[in-house]
Design a protein around this nucleic acid. Structure first.
Lengths: 333, 333
DNA sequence: CTGAAAGCGCTAACAT
DNA sequence: ATGTTAGCGCTTTCAG
């Protein structure tokens, strides 16, 4: 691959003139510029980014680590990040941690090694040394969707608690008294907040919280619903903590011949494509996914612009969600 | 950030000893190793990848460019690529071209500039100079999902033509005579192949092909279906060229009170989450998305291992799809 | 406005 | 087994 001095030789000028033309760093006489440009595209010169980084010690790449790039939520998030970064002249190195803390750790290490300018992460796990290390190496870290435990970093989340509380209240307003919360056992910030929001709403309404935990070490959804959807205390409404849970619930409901809205109401945290396609369409809490990604990237970009030797005060920004009322709770009133 | 020689100084040894310990390149006396290791993690050394690349002139990063990272199909593809690359010791630089040729071009340029070891792309557009340039700079390029027009590159696609033909035949076997193909106007390889497959199946069955083209410069889906779903020649089955089209069709059908399977049959190219959730679930052509990504990455990795000065014979691999029969065509027979 | 030299951090090659 | 040197391609600095 041709180098700067190859071009310089061909144009009969010094390397610095070429560098200046390539980067537009300083004015160069028209004559030199012409000759350089000519040589430049005759030879097909491509700057060597590695050399630039080595010299300046910071690349124009940012890193993004999410649990699973194939998950529509993270995919949209990643897309937003990438777009925003691109417009600011940054490329994005993306990685999936596969929900595994060890993978996340090594990916973080490799990114720091690659001298990413900054790091965005949807963290999994609780041991967060790697993020602290990144920071102490001058790589700003921003947490998305969940905070980074024990590490002072800027954080962007969604109002999980408030939204869950509000949508449970929505169910109460529709006259429901026996409202189920179906959730995953995984002890993840978002899930915890959502269940807490549901519980709070139930307490507000002086109703009994009934939480069905799914997953390893807990009952299956079939067992839970067998119990909760029969007897005189049977539930008439469900708050699903995620769309995965909602899909499982949907299948169960169909299996039992229960009709949405008519026999049982449903609200789900997080919109998903099928939600508007099933009959009747499902009321959901819509998250500002793209905004989350965009804002996070913007915050990072801002941090990159700051002088490092300033007092660092981590921000926690909580983005509002929207209760998108469709038809799974019956008529609105 | 600490460097190799910082560590060397602290350990009281030469830089190469440190380098050897860090990379495990060669045996070092236990005593030296001990001292180096100690210094290493006292000082928190992190290798500078840029310097390594500058020296060896090859990075362990591959690039992936897709039209839209937020699209579930490309997201899953990206995930598979990233996983495969990771296991082989490569990280993945991802970018969305946003379906725009100009963006794709600049992204490709930047990736070459970053000295990616290889490039995977789902190409958009027809002017493909940038890919040829990448190749001539020693960066192998692999096309995914669609071939790169006019550039000899390895290509992985899916059997669009055969699958469309087969699924249209499936409709014919169910006794349908008036089968519609609803497709997008965009002149993209996959879409073209799919429509061609449909046409071929219709010819095979001596039936008249009826293609409804959607998009700018064509009728809307409402207009098309107004025409095609009435009269005595009214269609009784639809082949949807993509899931986007299928969703649009679904909405139209619902609006008209037409029931799937009973009033009209539907087959869709490309599975999507809602397809199994609506009633009745929709028969689809399932694409091996993850395999596409994995195979593409593996092929690239293979190319990276090859000697550059070998006769290059581009491969075109076509992966088989699966007709996943659900219930939108009525009973199977 | 232009060029020459120094050096970013690393490792291949050579020297001890 | 270990240390020393040169140089990857670029830009910052200093001289002309």
């Amino acid at each position: 691959m041709p180098t700067l001095s190859d071009v310089a030789k061909l144009a009969g000028v010094g390397v610095m003139s070429v560098s200046r033309v390539v980067n537009g760093t300083r004015r160069v006489s028209p004559e030199v510029e012409r000759r350089v440009r000519q040589a430049l595209d005759r030879i097909g010169y491509i700057p060597n980014e590695a050399a630039r980084i080595l010299k300046g010690n910071r690349s124009s790449v940012i890193g993004l680590i999410v649990p699973d790039l194939a998950d529509p939520f993270f995919a949209e998030l990643g897309h937003a990040v990438q777009q925003t970064a691109w417009h600011a002249g940054y490329m994005t190195l993306m990685a999936s941690s596969d929900h595994r803390a060890d993978l996340e750790t090594s990916e973080t290490g490799l990114m720091v090694q690659r001298r990413v300018a900054g790091l965005l992460a949807v963290p999994v796990g609780n041991r967060n040394r790697h993020f602290a290390d990144a920071q102490s190496n001058g790589v700003p870290v921003i947490a998305i969707d969940r905070p980074i435990h024990n590490v002072p970093a800027d954080t962007l989340t969604v109002d999980n608690f408030a939204a869950s509380r509000r949508s449970t209240a929505h169910l109460v307003e529709h006259g429901h008294r026996h409202i189920l919360c179906v959730a995953d056992t995984e002890r993840i910030y978002t899930k915890l907040q959502r269940v807490a929001g549901y519980k709070r709403a139930m307490r507000d309404a002086k109703l009994t919280a009934r939480v069905c935990l799914l997953g390893p070490g807990a009952s299956t959804i079939t067992e839970h619903l067998d119990r909760e959807l029969s007897g005189r205390q049977r539930a008439t409404a469900i708050f699903a903590e995620s769309n995965l849970v909602a899909v499982a619930v949907l299948h169960e409901l169909r299996r039992r011949g229960l009709r949405l809205a008519k026999d049982i109401a449903l609200v789900c945290f997080d919109d998903f494509s099928a939600a508007s396609l099933v009959t009747p369409p499902i009321t959901v809490i819509q998250q500002p996914v793209a905004e989350l990604g965009r804002k996070a990237a913007e915050l990072l970009l801002m941090r990159l612009g700051e002088t490092q030797h300033k007092a660092f005060v981590p921000q926690h920004i909580e983005l509002p969600t929207r209760l998108l009322i469709r038809e799974s709770c019956g008529q609105h009133r």
